[in-house]
């Protein structure tokens, strides 16, 4: 694998081809905020908090660092007025759904996000997909999945599978950035009476 040299926040960074900007940044201790990212899982690119500014041949654009592959001589900025503005807006959009999430509150403080910017619609879930992907990719049980699309998208357990698999696992619980999953799971358990 060839070595790729590029720049993050003015620092020269060496990375292996095929790595993402996020991986390369973290390998040298540069922080980029994320919600839907997890080392054990395939990059998903849904929360967009990891958005950074990239100059490719003097062409600047915003990209999701968790899925953008490193390339020779690119220049990355992990903070800028625009990046911060976008992260703030994303957090505000999230906070409408999960105003009490500690993880979100911490980030909100850093980016000056106002949790009251949008009307509250406390659904808890922010669709980061960590539980769904973990159950699929790591556990390969597929007890929890997504349903529907757009703003109606939700997570949903398959009761028959959940009844067999989840009780002794619950590994997705600590992954959830809003602790919503537990609520959904408990609800689903309550609703489902296993057939004898």
């Amino acid at each position: 694998m060839s070595e790729i040299i590029f720049e993050i926040d003015g620092k020269e960074v060496k990375a292996k081809a095929g790595m993402t900007i996020l991986e390369a940044a973290r390998s040298v201790g540069i922080k980029i905020p994320t919600l839907c990212h997890h080392e054990a899982l395939e990059p998903f690119g849904s929360c967009r908090l990891c958005t950074v500014e990239v100059d490719v041949r003097s062409w600047t654009s915003l990209v999701a660092s968790c899925v953008y592959p490193v390339a020779q001589n690119i220049v990355v900025r992990t903070r800028s007025a625009k990046v911060d503005r976008i992260r703030k807006m994303i957090l505000e959009l999230y906070l409408a759904h999960a105003p009490d999430s500690f993880e979100l509150q911490d980030m909100a403080q850093e980016y000056g996000a106002d949790k009251n910017r949008f009307e509250k619609e406390a659904s808890f879930c922010i669709h980061c997909g960590l539980c769904v992907r973990y159950c699929n990719e790591v556990k390969q049980k597929n007890a929890v999945g997504f349903v529907d699309r757009g703003s109606r998208k939700e997570i949903c357990f398959i009761p028959e599978i959940a009844a067999q698999e989840c009780w002794d696992c619950k590994e997705c619980f600590p992954l959830c950035p809003t602790e919503a999953l537990q609520a959904a799971f408990v609800l689903s358990q309550a609703l489902y009476t296993p057939q004898k």
Binding site: C135, N142, A143, V144, G145, V147, R149, C156, I158, I161
Partner: peptide
């Protein structure tokens, strides 16, 4: 194909 995936498709 996992039922979760089918459920997602059937609602998507």
């Amino acid at each position: 194909v996992p039922l979760t995936q089918i459920q997602h498709i059937a609602t998507f």
